Simulated assay, not measured.
Amino acid sequence: MLSGVCIAQSLKIPREPRPGEFDKIVLRLLETPNARAVIMFANEDDIRRILDAAKRNNLTGHFLWVGSDSWGSKISPVLHQERVAEGAITILPKRASVDAFDRYFKSRSLSNNRRNVWFAEFWEENFVCKLGMHGKRPGSPKKCTGRKQHMYY
């Protein structure tokens, strides 16, 4: 317990949830009757399914939801279930550009960035191309040239 705050439960959403899994999670939250705030760090699809389970189990208004930026900057998690999400607090961290990093990153190419094991995949994804036989994009329409055409940020 820290300054009057305690964590009553810590629940995890399975990577591939089975049918009824979200109902079980919501019902487990009810096992601690005095705990009403639910802090969720989850993707928008899982947030939507948790809110839907709360609605299905007649728990609209029961929980105070605190959500991460996966929810706070998007409408899709609450679309058509606004009542169950009413009063939610969502957190969106302040974001800022770091000019020196931006300059460095924009200067990267296939020839000068061999240390970063993910760069080739990033390059293929950004330029919709394939880097030889071992490329990550099977069936890509064009071969990567190594020249920058348009970098999407």
Rank of each mutant, 00 (worst) to 15 (best):
Trp123Thr: 02
Val128Asp: 15
Val98Thr: 11
Leu59Thr: 10
Ser97Glu: 04
Arg48Ala: 05
Val66Pro: 07
Pro77Phe: 12
Leu51Thr: 04
Lys142Asp: 09
Lys74Pro: 03
Gly135Met: 00
Arg48Tyr: 10
Glu125Ile: 14
Gly4Arg: 14
His150Cys: 12
Lys55Ser: 05
Asn113Ile: 07
Ile25Glu: 06
Leu27Gln: 08
Ser10Asn: 15
Ala96Thr: 12
Arg36Glu: 10
Gly67Glu: 02
Gly87Pro: 01
Gly139Ala: 05
Gly67Phe: 05
Lys136Cys: 09
Pro93Phe: 08
Arg48Phe: 01
Glu124Cys: 09
Pro141Phe: 14
Asp102Cys: 10
Glu21Asp: 10
Ser73Leu: 11
Asp46Val: 08
Arg48Ser: 12
Phe101Val: 04
Ala88Ile: 03
Asp52Trp: 07
Val26Pro: 01
Ala96Pro: 04
Arg18Gly: 07
Val38Pro: 02
Ser76Ala: 14
Lys24Cys: 08
Gln9Tyr: 08
Arg36Ala: 08
Asn126Lys: 02
Lys142Met: 09
Asp52Thr: 15
Val66Asp: 04
Arg108Leu: 13
Glu86Asp: 11
Leu92Met: 11
Gly20Met: 01
Phe127Ser: 04
Val66Glu: 03
Lys143Leu: 11
Leu51Phe: 12
Val38Gly: 05
Ser68Cys: 04
His134Gly: 15
His134Ser: 14
Gly135Pro: 00
Leu29Ser: 05
Leu92Cys: 10
Glu125Thr: 14
His134Tyr: 12
Ile50Lys: 01
Asn34Phe: 07
Glu121Asp: 14
Gly4Thr: 12
